[in-house]
């Protein structure tokens, strides 16, 4: 007498094999789906809106990076190339020169270069800039506001909770799409 029933050990083996195949299939589908979703959606990075920035100085102090990943950037198209630059010179300077006592920047990170009478070009040395925003305050008050702060993404760790965003008094920080990571003045309008 022959029996068509499989032995119990065979049935268990098939169950385990089938289970492994289903698990593998689900994993593969999951990974593929996640890859597709990730490529379709955009990563987000931290950036600050220069029109909301109040130059409180916290970008220099609160960033986990030292010096801060926030740097002053210069929108040259907006700059007036002023001789009496509110972002470069201290209020009421002794003279309009590059002498240290006349410079507003605490780290001398702005370079002043003569173009032609009475125009000067101002260039930020980002290695020296600590993101304090002092020059931004001067430029915003007395100039065109061409100097402004931005998070530099080659330096930013893109923390889950940005230490500066947490304390920013004007809520200028937000996450922006990584394909458009900068909010440069002149490229976009207030509001």
């Amino acid at each position: 007498m022959s029996s068509k029933e499989e032995p119990v050990s065979h049935s268990r083996r098939r169950l385990i094999r089938n289970g492994m195949q289903v698990t593998l299939a689900i994993s593969l589908i999951g990974i593929a789906g996640r890859t597709v979703l990730k490529s379709a959606s955009d990563d987000l990075v931290w950036q600050l809106d220069p029109f909301k920035c109040v130059q409180c100085g916290r970008c220099a102090k609160e960033c986990v990076m030292s010096p801060s990943a926030v740097k002053c950037v210069h929108a040259y198209a907006l700059c007036g190339y002023c001789d009496l630059c509110g972002g470069y010179l201290k209020p009421d300077p002794n003279a309009r020169t590059t002498a240290a006592e006349n410079q507003l920047c605490p780290t001398a990170a702005i370079k002043r270069k003569y173009i032609e009478d009475p125009y000067f070009e101002y260039v930020i040395d980002e290695k020296l800039c600590i993101g304090c925003g002092k020059c931004v305050a001067g430029c915003t008050s007395f100039g065109n506001g061409s100097l402004h702060l931005q998070v530099r993404h080659d330096l930013c760790r893109n923390c889950n909770e940005c230490a500066i965003a947490r304390v920013c008094p004007s809520e200028a920080f937000s996450r922006v799409p990584s394909h458009k990571p900068y909010l440069i003045k002149g490229d976009f309008k207030k509001g």
Binding site: G57, K61, P91, A137, S141, A165, V167, P169, E171
Partner: peptide, 12 residues
């Protein structure tokens, strides 16, 4: 916290 006024050593 955001919104708190703190002294700014880099104040203009």
């Amino acid at each position: 916290k955001a919104g708190q006024n703190k002294s700014n050593p880099y104040e203009y």
